[in-house]
Write a protein that binds this DNA or RNA. Structure first.
Lengths: 339, 339
DNA sequence: TTGAAAGCGCTAACAT
DNA sequence: ATGTTAGCGCTTTCAA
């Protein structure tokens, strides 16, 4: 059987309270006994049972991470950075794939609570803010990542999607494009709406009329991006550029173009969003709006950590700025160089 | 404060044992009291504290998953399938990125044990089987995924790497290639050695001499694949085909070829390994050896589940078969059609 | 500086 | 069918 704190205490001829104190470096303990107890723990191969610790201290050092799908590269990269930071701080991450389904979200959330996670990182759907109340009501620390939660006082770290949309579209406009389509992931997401807003603002700034028919909605897969882009490209008067609201959709768009023999960027410029590692892998390399994924992950963990530390109940929103990453998938219409 | 089992018991006018029994559906309880207790739990918004449950029952319903890096698409897909199956069985997954570093492996492993996970899924390095003993000694259920562990009686589920190497190479040979290079991920991995063995066996079967200089070693990144492939392609007498031991390396190879103006598959055929979703994304679409990732994940969880259920201490090895997925990156040397 | 003892919230014999 | 009670392994007052 694995040794418990009792075994160590007995062996060392002290009480369990004393052992507990040397383990946690709390209270006053003479160097003598500290040393002896430490040696004995070592010798016995003792390691504290963290479940018991959790029960009495109310801290599990576990964090829940809810995301739509870990096999999506964007979320995988995010998860990696989150886990790294959490690990530095001594926390473990429990992943939960929600597929953006409310039931799964709710499910995981209650489960995580029962398991006593110290906090939750939310990088998933949240169509219904109610599931959030479920947590805040029970005062479980939460921070939301890359999702805007209307009128809910939760810590949030996100990227300026409006600016992202602006950046992408302005880039295209500056290159000389005047007929630019946009493919959004889902109008249910505030981030999509913001990116669209940025798109419209850029058009307006360049005196280009906005046309509703140039807005297409899809979901977040390459396949659906390909379908939607296909429809756009098959139109008699197809646009000269497409702004896809995430890299996967952009890749779908490139594939749709390739399938139709439309050269990219020769006859069609494409810009994505996220700057996942996929951008460098496809051909042509994808111009995209870069999200500071690493920062996003770290800041989210840090924010949550603060909140868990009992600090400032004052919630905050950290807005990170996106940046345009120009690669090979965009050029002036007709092939001219950039203005 | 959240209600405890005591609160429910008091409210229902029964003992906590009774409440416990209705929660766990154990023992004999009259329909009457069961109903009443259930209603009261509902009304009070009671949910069992799973940390306490874990402490007394010795089951946390948590599984540790060690992998090199979740942001690697192969492992992300694996993790997804694992989590799905685990979730079906009522388990949560704690992810641990090891970067294939022994210290991190050891670290996580001891940590997970202390946290009382019910079992561990190992999809990581393991250069040193000792870390494994660390677990088996304390009889923590473990199953190893896609890694061969020499002379250790652990449950394992893997794909037949030898056959994979054979499949890939034979495909190339049947197309007519005679000068085929191979890029392996790392000679420390048994899987790499097996794939190489399959490669050699295929050559032998076609009476093609094996040449040591056609074997290149890299790590598992696209960048390194590009470097290594670059060296191969820069040789005066470059091969007509490359078998890269994972998709990322294959992609690196394609990029290296592109950078040198060598058309793929025109002047160079490339086949990868894993069949991650990347294969369909790049251009040309990548011919690869498909691993049944979904099955790999599910079976690993099921195997672990069995072992945790106390079943058969008899360990087993489940060997899944790979399958060749032909896409556009391979063709006969010189452009002729397949024989 | 050290220890006794009361929890933390639940499970599981063992009684009744 | 239901209740009593002793743990599970640790933390944390409060005394000594």
């Amino acid at each position: 059987m694995k040794p418990t704190i009792y075994d160590v205490a007995r062996e060392a001829g002290v009480s369990i309270a004393t052992v507990s104190k040397v383990i946690n470096r709390t209270g006053k303990i003479s160097e003598q006994t500290r040393a002896r107890v430490t040696d004995i723990m070592e010798a016995m191969g003792y390691a504290p049972n963290l479940v018991a610790t959790a029960l009495s201290s109310k801290k599990t050092y576990m964090l829940g991470l809810l995301l739509p799908d870990i096999s999506n590269p964007y979320f995988a990269e995010l998860a990696r950075n989150i886990e790294d930071r959490a690990h530095e701080l001594g926390y473990n991450i429990v992943i939960c794939n929600t597929d953006n389904r409310v039931e799964k979200e709710r499910d995981y959330l209650t489960f995580l609570q029962q398991k006593g996670v110290d906090g939750v990182l939310l990088a998933t759907g949240l169509a219904h803010p109610e599931s959030l109340d479920l947590l805040t009501d029970r005062k479980l620390p939460v921070t939301v990542i890359a999702r805007e939660v209307p009128r809910s006082p939760v810590n949030t770290v996100l990227v300026d999607d409006y600016m992202g949309g602006l950046l992408a579209t302005s880039h295209l406009l500056r290159l000389g494009h005047r007929d630019i389509a946009i493919i959004v992931e889902s109008m249910d997401l505030e981030s999509s709406r913001q990116r669209l807003k940025g798109y419209r603002a850029a058009l307006a700034a360049h005196d280009v009329a906005f046309e509703g028919r140039r807005v297409a909605v899809s979901d977040f897969s390459v396949a659906s991006g390909m379908d939607v882009a296909g429809a756009i490209l098959d139109a008699a008067d197809r646009p000269t550029a497409v702004f896809a609201c995430n890299d996967l959709l952009a890749i779908g768009t490139i594939q749709a173009a390739r399938a139709r023999g439309i050269p990219v960027p020769g006859e069609l410029s494409v810009v994505g969003f996220d700057n996942t590692f996929l951008c460098g892998i496809i051909d042509p390399a994808l111009t995209t709006v870069g999200q500071p994924i690493r920062e996003l992950g770290r800041q989210a963990v840090d924010l949550l950590h603060k909140q868990m530390g009992g600090e400032e109940p004052a919630r905050q929103r950290v807005v990170l700025l996106p940046e345009l990453v120009v690669r090979a998938s965009t050029q002036a219409p007709g092939g001219a160089a950039e203005a």
